[in-house]
Each structure stands twice: as structure tokens, then as C-alpha cells.
């Protein structure tokens, strides 16, 4: 379970999160929407302790992240896969080494062959060819980098996955492959996940619930049906952006 309890965060005078509470149940996938710059990425970063809340608490897998010790934090982080918005691949390592870094350290030391196989399997899952394994991030297109980032996030059979715009920059076919992979991870493997995205259609296909972050708060939270039928003008503008202009924060 992932839980944010009254989390507040400001950068200087810029209030990003104002007492935000959010709960993602075990095995559930939540889609997180919101205008650009509202704090979706900041919210995800709180979950693995890359950003500390000014106030409030973040609980992941039963551990309070802001209060966790080094080894506890490390244990949780190895159970959480994170697809960074900008991919954040290590440019001194090739694709295979990048993917292997997503696996637990001990396994990497003890089972080299197994890790290699798993890396190849992850490449296949994100629809990349084996030959890509030896390339360096600078030799990949943006969409390929994104899929390698996805492969790295799932390489260690992570129980939790945080996807920061996993399909942005992908062609419709690859976006659909990634969306199917997210659905598969959830349905077959019971992964608990949060997807930050602007891709409403694909997100609605895989998510159990939807949250809308707007003006530093969770403006709306509900099932896909509830969202589609909502009469709230802000929600409306997100669900059907073509009929109304998107409000900006």
C-alpha cells in the first residue's frame, strides 16, 4: 500500500502540495492527472524519498519514508520501480547495464547469467530488440530511452511501480504496448502502481481509480466511470479536453 497523509510541500513561496492525502491499495493502479507544473512528479518523488515533505507522512509497504533509516529506505526502494519523466538513464552504461541496475544488488553479484536473461526478457516486454542491449543511451531515440527506463523499472520484479508519463513521446503502437504491459503487470502480477500521464484514453484502460491534482490539492478522486460522468468543470475539462479549454493553475 502507498499512502500520503496530509503531505505539504513548498519550494520557497511556491506551494506545490497543500495537505494532500492519497491512498493506493495493494494491487491497485491509480492514474494521476493534473495540469503541467502542478506537482505530479513531485508527488511521485515523495513516495521513494527523493523529496522530503515539509509536513505530513508517506507510508510505503508499511514504512514511513521520511523517517526511514538507510537500510530500510534501501529495501523499500528496491521494491519500487520508478520510470522517470526524462528517462534518467545512466549515460556511462549501456542499455543492458542500465536494466541490470534495476535488479537487487545481491542477485546481480550471484547470478550473472540469470540477470542477463532477465534483461533480455525486459527488452522484449517493452518491444525493443536484443541488439539494443549493447547501445548507449545517447545512441537511442527519446521513445527508446523511455522504454529502456520502463525495462529498468520492472527488471527486479518490483511490487510497486511509479510511472511518470510512461507513454509520452511514443508512437500510438508503442504507447499501446506499454499500456498493455502496465495492465499485464497489474493483472497477472498484482503490482501496485501510480501512473502520471496526460494520455487519458490509455490511462483509463488500465487504472482502477483516477485522481486529479489541481491547485496543490486532490481536486477529484474516483473510478473511471465517476470521472467520465462528473459534472465538475475542472474534471470535465480533463476528461474531454477538446470540448473546453484546459484550466491552468
Amino acid at each position: 500500500m502507498i499512502e500520503l497523509i496530509e503531505v505539504s510541500k513548498s519550494f520557497g513561496a511556491n506551494v506545490i502540495l497543500d495537505k494532500v492525502s492519497l491512498r493506493v491499495e495493494e494491487g491497485e493502479t491509480l492514474a494521476l492527472f493534473g495540469p503541467s507544473g502542478t506537482g505530479k512528479s513531485v508527488t511521485l518523488k515523495h513516495i521513494i524519498g527523493l523529496i522530503e515533505p515539509d509536513e505530513g507522512d508517506v507510508i510505503v509497504d508499511g514504512v514511513s519514508i521520511p523517517n526511514a533509516g538507510r537500510s530500510e529506505l534501501k529495501r523499500v526502494r528496491q521494491r519500487v520501480g520508478y520510470v522517470f519523466q526524462g528517462s534518467a538513464l545512466f549515460d556511462s552504461m549501456n542499455v543492458e547495464e542500465n536494466i541490470i541496475l534495476g535488479m537487487p544488488e545481491q542477485r546481480v553479484r550471484e547470478d550473472k547469467a540469470g540477470c542477463h536473461e532477465r534483461a533480455m526478457e525486459c527488452l522484449r516486454l517493452v518491444n525493443l530488440e536484443r541488439q539494443v542491449a549493447d547501445l548507449y543511451p545517447s545512441e537511442l531515440s527519446g521513445g527508446m530511452q523511455k522504454r529502456v527506463a520502463m525495462a529498468r523499472a520492472i527488471a527486479g520484479h518490483q511490487a510497486y511501480l511509479l510511472y511518470d508519463e510512461p507513454t509520452t513521446g511514443l508512437d500510438p503502437k508503442n504507447a499501446s504496448i506499454i499500456t498493455n504491459l502496465i495492465a499485464h503487470l497489474q493483472e497477472e502480477l498484482g503490482v501496485t502502481g501510480i501512473i502520471v500521464t496526460h494520455d487519458i484514453e490509455n490511462a483509463f484502460r488500465v487504472s482502477d481509480r483516477v485522481a486529479l491534482l489541481y491547485e496543490a490539492q486532490i481536486h477529484a478522486l474516483g473510478t473511471v466511470e465517476e470521472f467520465l460522468e462528473s459534472s465538475d468543470p475542472v474534471v470535465q475539462s480533463f476528461v474531454r479536453p477538446d470540448t473546453e479549454s484546459v484550466p491552468t493553475a
Partner: peptide, 17 residues
């Protein structure tokens, strides 16, 4: 460069120091 491209954050995210 690793900091501004979030590679350092990514290292921490995979549990490395």
C-alpha cells in the same frame, strides 16, 4: 550533468547510494 538529468535521483531510486 548526472544531477541535472536526474541520473543521481535514478541511482537512489534503484536503492544505490
Amino acid at each position: 550533468t548526472m544531477v541535472v538529468t536526474e541520473q543521481v535521483d535514478a541511482l537512489r531510486a534503484v536503492g544505490r547510494d
